[in-house]
Every structure is written in structure tokens, then in C-alpha cells.
């Protein structure tokens, strides 16, 4: 509208005829000043550690002699060659846990968003409640749940399910603890809320009239879900799977407490290299490889799921 309005007031024109439309420089900089705290935060807590880590990964030396940057990129190849099984395992476990989270979390989020009614807040609190205790305690609780002599294992045994899972190599004899199954269970449990919350948010945003419209247009409930509800919840699915997969791939506590030697993930290796072996370059290189791998996978995933504009 302003463009078709009368010219700027006369007095302004007389004092600064050439700069009528110019905003003062100070004013133009305001948005950047507002960005400053965020940028500083990123520099201090993200960029600087990243540079430091990058530097560490190409150093050589020891604690006594000190570490010096020697551009020793071979660390990356050595680390990858040595620990690729743990990398593959991390990605595999995280992917399975993410899939399980989606399978469990979607109905749950759907229920909360559309069916819970006045119980919605109560159910939400139940979903979040585990966060009130520490990650470690929650994981340790699973050792009790899955104990060899516990009811879960007894039930699985009486159904002969453990025979099947043992044959598949995801459990070991008649036990669940210290097997891949236990680690995946722990990961699934610990990261489930990260799946449920974004799913709930995106489901809850769907206009219920769209469901009615689909029904009105001859879509059965199942078709409505497939053609309308699910596509519209894609931003939640993408966000949820990322929020689950990324931390699960880097997790080491579940593998440490619920797994055995054959279930160690890349997080355990990094921890061990950093704290026990004191091989900082290898630890840093492994962290970088993990980061790069996840970044690449996530980028491809977002491209494929076509939700770049929705996320």
C-alpha cells in the first residue's frame, strides 16, 4: 500500500533529498545484534569444540610428551579399519530401535492426539515421566525387568520364543540380558519419548475435519489413515525418527549395561579410547566419522522423505 501513497513528508525531502528511503545504518544492524548471542553461543559451544576436535583427530603424541598436530590423517583410516564392526552395529541397532519406536510410538501418539480426550494430559505426563529419573537409573531398571530369573524371561521361555530368537542370534541361550535384544530394548525404551512427542505434535495439528472430509469422500478409516493422516504426520515422523536415531546411534550406556562384549557400540569405543586408552586422536577421529556418517544419512533421509519444507 505504501508504494502508491503520497511522497514522503516535505520536510524530510528538504533536509535529506537524496536519502529519503535509506534506513539509518544503526537500524539496519539491529537484527544482526540480536543474532549475536546465538552466534556467540554457537561459536563457543559448537564451532570451537568442533575445531578443537578436528585438530585433536590429526594430532599424534602421548599424554607425557604432549600432542602435536602432525596432520596425521591415517588415524581416520586406522580407526575405521579397526572399529567398523562397531560402526555397523551402532547404525543397525539404532535403526532397529528407531523402527520399533515408530511402531510403538505412532499408535501411542495417535491415541493421545485423537482418542485420549480429557486424559490427554495424564497420558502425556506418563510418556514424559521416565525423564524425571536419570538415564542411567532407567537403564539399570531394565536389568531387573529382563533378569534371567525374572517374569519376562520366564514368559518368553514358556512360549519358546527365546529358542527362536536364539536361533536368530539376537538372544543367547535362555537369557535376554547381555544380548542384542536387551540393548535394542533399552535403546527403544530410552528414546521412545523422543519419537512420541514430535509425532504427537504433528498429529495434534491435523484438522479433524480433514478426517471427516476423507470419510465423506468414500475413504474407509484405514484409507483415511494411509492417504491423509499419515502423509500429514510426515514432519513428525521425520523429526521423531531423527531425534531417536541420532542419539541412539551415539549411545553407549545401553550397550554398556545391557549388552555383552559383542554388543559394544561406537559410543563405547569412543569412551574407552578417550578415557581408558587415552588415545585422544583416535577418539576424536571416531567422533568425527560418526558425526559425518550420521549427517550424510540424515541428509539423504530428509531428501528421500521429501519433507525438507515441512521439517
Amino acid at each position: 500500500m505504501t508504494t502508491t501513497e503520497t511522497p514522503a513528508p516535505a520536510e524530510e525531502q528538504t533536509t535529506a533529498p537524496l536519502e529519503v528511503r535509506k534506513t539509518p545504518a544503526r537500524k539496519r544492524l539491529v537484527p544482526y545484534w540480536l543474532l549475536l548471542p546465538g552466534i556467540l553461543w554457537l561459536i563457543v559451544f559448537f564451532a570451537a569444540p568442533l575445531v578443537y576436535q578436528a585438530s585433536t583427530s590429526i594430532q599424534t603424541g602421548s599424554l607425557e610428551e604432549g600432542f602435536k598436530v602432525t596432520w596425521h590423517f591415517a588415524t581416520y583410516w586406522d580407526a575405521l579399519g579397526e572399529y567398523w564392526p562397531q560402526f555397523v552395529r551402532s547404525v543397525g541397532y539404532a535403526a532397529i530401535a528407531t523402527a520399533l519406536c515408530l511402531l510403538l510410538g505412532y499408535p501411542l501418539a495417535y491415541l493421545i492426539a485423537f482418542k485420549a480426550g480429557r486424559w490427554r494430559n495424564v497420558v502425556m505426563i506418563l510418556v514424559i515421566a521416565p525423564f524425571f529419573t536419570s538415564f542411567l537409573i532407567r537403564t539399570l531398571a531394565w536389568k531387573t525387568i529382563l533378569a534371567d530369573g525374572g517374569p519376562v524371561v520366564a514368559a518368553l521361555n514358556s512360549l519358546h520364543l527365546l529358542d527362536v530368537t536364539s536361533a536368530l542370534g539376537i538372544t543367547e541361550g535362555h537369557r535376554v540380558l547381555a544380548t542384542p535384544l536387551a540393548v535394542v530394548c533399552g535403546l527403544t525404551y530410552n528414546f521412545l519419548p523422543f519419537m512420541v512427542l514430535p509425532l504427537y505434535t504433528s498429529l495434534e495439528r491435523i484438522d479433524p475435519r480433514l478426517h471427516e472430509a476423507a470419510g465423506d469422500l468414500y475413504a474407509r478409516p484405514a484409507t483415511t489413515f494411509r492417504r491423509v493422516t499419515f502423509p500429514l504426520s510426515m514432519p513428525g515422523v521425520v523429526a521423531g525418527t531423527l531425534l531417536t536415531f541420532i542419539p541412539a546411534a551415539g549411545d553407549y550406556i545401553n550397550a554398556e549395561l545391557l549388552g555383552s562384549t559383542d554388543q559394544k557400540m561406537i559410543g563405547n569405543v569412543i569412551q574407552s579410547q578417550f578415557l581408558r586408552v587415552l588415545d585422544y586422536p583416535t577418539a576424536a577421529a571416531l567422533s568425527f566419522i560418526l558425526m559425518a556418517a550420521i549427517l550424510a544419512m540424515v541428509t539423504i533421509y530428509i531428501r528421500k522423505s521429501g519433507t525438507e519444507d515441512l521439517v
Partner: peptide, 28 residues
């Protein structure tokens, strides 16, 4: 509803935001 020979024009239209116009119209 999906078994009734009735169609509705909703208040605020309730068009499917993830489908283009063509697919919206073709939906039924």
C-alpha cells in the same frame, strides 16, 4: 459417511494440504 451417497463442502473447505488441486478433486 464413506458409505453414503452424500458429499460435503466443509466450512473452511478442509482441503487436503498435502495434495495438489488435481489430487484433491480426484480423491473421491
Amino acid at each position: 459417511p464413506y458409505k453414503r451417497q452424500v458429499n460435503t463442502v466443509f466450512q473452511n473447505y478442509a482441503l487436503f494440504p498435502h495434495l495438489d488441486i488435481y489430487e484433491n478433486v480426484a480423491f473421491g
